[in-house]
Structure formats: C-alpha cells, structure tokens
Simulated assay, not measured.
Amino acid sequence: MATAFEVVGGGGGAGGGTTLSDLYQNSKRLLLKSRDGLERLERLGYASSSLPSSSLDSSPELFDSVKRDIAQILSLCTDMDHLWRSIPAKSQRDLWKRKVEQVAEEAISLKDSLEKYSQRIQRRTQEAQERAELLGRVNGESSHVLRIFDDEAQAMQSVQTSSRMLEDAYATGVAILSKYSEQRDHLKRAQRKALDVLNRLGLSNSVLRLIERRNRVDRWIKYAGMIITIIIVIMVWRWTS
C-alpha cells in the first residue's frame, strides 16, 4: 500500500506520475517565489509613487510572472486536494488536509494582495493622468506638466534627506550631551571621594583651591562642548534646508 508521501497524481498542472509530496514541494517553492515577486513589485510601486508612470507599466513581466505562479499554486492545490482524500490512514489524511489548506490560504492571500496592488497602481496612474490633463489644459504644455512632477519628486526627496540628516545630527548632539552629563556625575563622585581623602590626610587649603579651580575649568570645557554641538546642529540644519 502506498504511503501518504507516495500517493501518485496523474492530472492537473503536475503531470503524470507526480507524488503528493512532489506537488507540495512545488507549491511551497512557488509560494516563496510569488511572495518575493510581490515584495519586489511593492518596492517598485513605492519608488514610483511620486512619478506619473506606474511600476505596473514598467515591470509587466514581473507582474504577469507572479500572477501565473499564483494560478499554478491554486492548480496544484486542486491536484493535491484530490490526492490527499485517497490516503487510507486517517492521521496522514488529516495531516495532508491541513498542509493543502495552508498552501491554498497563502495562495489566496497572495492573490488578494496582488489584486489590491494592481488596483492601487491603476488608481494612482489614473490620478496622475487626470492631474496631467488638468495641468495640460491650463498650461497647454505636457512637457511642463512632466517637469512639475519631476520637481515635486526631487523636492520631496530633498526634504526627506534633509530631515534624516537633521535627525541624525540631533541624535548625535543628544548622545554627546548625555555623555557629558555622565562624565560630570563621575567627576563629582570622584571629587567628593578625593576631597574626603584629602581632608583625612590634612592637606592644605591651597591644594583644595587648586582642585576647585580645575573643577571650574572642566565645567567651562563642558559648556563650550555643548555650545559647539548646538552650533554644529544649527549649521547642518541650515546647510540641508
């Protein structure tokens, strides 16, 4: 008697003599491929979100490939659904039923995501065309419309870059100030310990005054560092804006 992994199918998209295990492995491979393709489409769609053309127009081969892979997965699920029902052992039959249902659910989820992606791209393309037509009627020049879109995209990218640089500079300043604060606390504790030791040793007041002057110098150095950090942050912000 054939085991659950040796049940043989003869139709569908798998071809004759293909086992249930082979169909399942093929479906899992296609799921990974489809998921990767959909993620690439989403990245292309995000990159072209501010341009008048859509990623669906610029990568039709990838879109069609993902669509074909999902259709093939669903076809394999149909074949596997017929095969697992012929497994004699109930435990193995229930196991394969869950596996096939899981693959089918993932394939349907990918199909829904692909359809939503397609609708989103089509809607974005239509909106871009409507804006182009509106501006074209006002200005009478389609090249001017395209130049406006390019300027907007470059401006948005520049703003995002400037914002990231300002955030990095701010984070650096905060880290430096925090470090100064930690060093100040360490110095205070060290000075208190040193003063206690010096008092116990009976050192002269001149030595204590020298230590106090050094403390004031360190404090001015700390303030100067904070001011320099703030100036650097302001200069970076003005340079990027």
Rank of each mutant, 00 (worst) to 15 (best):
N139Y: 09
Q122S: 10
A153G: 02
K90H: 10
R123S: 12
C77V: 14
E127P: 00
S75N: 10
Y117A: 04
T125E: 05
E130I: 01
R131D: 01
D112V: 14
C77A: 15
C77P: 06
A104L: 06
E115C: 08
D150R: 05
A153D: 05
V145M: 05
S91N: 12
V145G: 02
L134Y: 05
D81Y: 09
L76T: 10
D150P: 00
S86G: 09
N139S: 13
D112N: 15
I73L: 06
R120T: 09
Q119I: 03
A107V: 07
Q122K: 11
R98N: 14
S91A: 12
G136M: 02
H82Y: 12
H144Y: 09
I73F: 06
A89K: 11
R137H: 03
L110C: 13
Q129F: 05
D94G: 06
S86F: 07
V138M: 07
A132G: 05
A89W: 06
D81V: 04
R147D: 10
L114E: 08
Q102V: 05
S109R: 13
L134A: 09
L74R: 09
A89N: 15
E115R: 11
A155N: 00
S91K: 12
L114T: 05
S113I: 04
D81P: 02
S91V: 11
R147K: 12
C77W: 02
E130Y: 02
A128M: 08
D151G: 01
Q126C: 03
T78E: 15
Y117C: 03
R137A: 02
Q92Y: 13
H82C: 15
I121A: 15
L135T: 00
L76R: 12
K111N: 11
I148Y: 00
Y117S: 03
L95K: 14
D79R: 08
Q119P: 00
S142K: 11
G136N: 02
I73A: 04
A132R: 01
T78Q: 12
Q157D: 07
E152Y: 09
R137W: 00
H144E: 10
C77Y: 03
K97A: 05
E130N: 04
F149W: 11
K99A: 13
S91R: 14
Q119M: 09
R131H: 02
D81A: 14
S91D: 12
S118F: 07
D81E: 15
K116R: 13
I148W: 01
R137I: 00
G136V: 00
E101K: 10
R137T: 00
T78G: 13
Q129R: 08
L83T: 04
K111F: 04
I87P: 05
N139W: 13
Y117N: 01
A155W: 00
R98W: 08
V103G: 03
Q157N: 09
A155E: 01
E141S: 15
D151E: 08
S109A: 13
D112R: 13
E141R: 11
V100H: 03
L95R: 12
D94E: 12
Q129D: 04
R131Q: 04
V100G: 02
Q102L: 10
I87S: 09
D112Q: 11
S113N: 10
Q92D: 13
W84E: 10
